[in-house]
Simulated assay, not measured.
Amino acid sequence: MKMLKQTLLLAGVLAAGIVSAQSTEMNNMIKVGANVGLAVPADNVSAAVGLDVAYQNLITPGFGLGIATGYSHYFGKDNNGLNNNDVGVIPAAALIRIYPKQTGFYFGTDLGYGFLVGDDKVASNSTVDRPDGGFYIKPEIGYHNKDWNFFVQYQKVFTGNDGNIEGQDYNVGNIGVGFSYNIPLGK
């Protein structure tokens, strides 16, 4: 029964996207943007800055699909005697967006794999290897118009127990804000 309710909710959201008033002049676009955030939880990193690049196609006037990548840099911090190293995230993700109206509120997510890059070790004074990556998610909610998107996001790479050291869990995630500029590619 719970799955039926979730399926009906998803169908309702998609139907709202189909009948929304999103402009049909711009079906394909490249989104280029930047974001900043504070690490959550903050065991091994403190903050993040990133650049985003995505391609989006409006399947219906209010529903977009595409691909997303970019680079987010997480700044390592000292914790429980560990000198944690910086780490970078390069996502390879699917982009999903819902636009209820031509301008205004929107929401969506990026889902895929986040490649972790940087030093091979979690901390400069540790022998524990940094994981190579994991499941990547970046839900966001924000405001949009024809040219710009302004949003609040949560970005996370799930690495399981890889990279964990006694006294801290290995975490790569943040809550932040960002913006992107839409470059139209036509219909």
Score class of each variant (00 low, 15 high):
2 K>G: 04
8 L>M: 06
9 L>M: 13
10 L>W: 13
11 A>C: 08
11 A>L: 13
12 G>M: 09
13 V>D: 09
13 V>S: 06
13 V>A: 13
14 L>H: 02
14 L>F: 11
15 A>R: 06
15 A>V: 08
16 A>M: 15
18 I>T: 09
22 Q>A: 12
22 Q>L: 08
24 T>D: 11
24 T>A: 08
25 E>L: 10
27 N>H: 04
29 M>F: 10
30 I>N: 01
34 A>R: 00
34 A>I: 03
35 N>K: 10
36 V>H: 04
36 V>D: 08
37 G>Q: 06
37 G>R: 00
40 V>K: 05
40 V>W: 07
42 A>Q: 11
43 D>T: 11
43 D>I: 04
43 D>R: 04
44 N>G: 03
46 S>Q: 13
48 A>W: 02
49 V>T: 13
49 V>Y: 08
51 L>K: 00
52 D>C: 02
54 A>Y: 04
57 N>M: 13
57 N>Q: 11
59 I>W: 11
59 I>P: 00
59 I>A: 07
60 T>P: 05
63 F>P: 00
64 G>C: 07
66 G>N: 02
66 G>W: 12
66 G>I: 11
68 A>G: 12
70 G>F: 05
70 G>L: 04
71 Y>I: 07
72 S>A: 13
73 H>V: 04
79 N>D: 12
80 N>A: 13
82 L>Y: 15
83 N>C: 00
88 G>A: 04
90 I>E: 04
92 A>L: 15
92 A>C: 08
94 A>P: 05
94 A>M: 14
95 L>P: 01
98 I>P: 00
102 Q>E: 14
103 T>L: 00
105 F>H: 10
106 Y>F: 14
107 F>A: 14
108 G>A: 08
109 T>F: 11
110 D>V: 07
111 L>C: 12
111 L>A: 10
112 G>M: 08
112 G>L: 09
117 V>E: 07
118 G>Y: 02
118 G>C: 01
119 D>E: 15
122 V>H: 05
123 A>T: 06
123 A>F: 03
125 N>L: 02
126 S>H: 07
126 S>N: 10
127 T>N: 11
127 T>M: 05
128 V>R: 11
128 V>N: 04
128 V>P: 01
128 V>D: 06
129 D>P: 02
129 D>G: 09
130 R>W: 09
131 P>W: 11
133 G>C: 12
134 G>N: 10
134 G>F: 06
135 F>L: 14
137 I>W: 14
139 P>K: 01
140 E>R: 12
141 I>N: 00
141 I>P: 00
142 G>P: 03
144 H>S: 03
144 H>W: 01
145 N>T: 04
145 N>D: 14
145 N>L: 07
145 N>C: 03
148 W>L: 15
149 N>A: 08
150 F>G: 09
152 V>S: 07
154 Y>D: 04
155 Q>L: 05
156 K>W: 09
159 T>P: 07
161 N>C: 05
163 G>C: 14
165 I>Q: 14
165 I>E: 13
166 E>A: 15
167 G>K: 06
170 Y>Q: 04
171 N>D: 13
171 N>H: 11
172 V>H: 01
172 V>N: 03
173 G>W: 00
174 N>E: 14
174 N>Q: 10
176 G>T: 12
177 V>W: 08
180 S>T: 11
181 Y>H: 05
182 N>F: 06
183 I>V: 15
183 I>G: 02
184 P>V: 02
184 P>Q: 03
185 L>I: 09
186 G>W: 09
187 K>W: 01
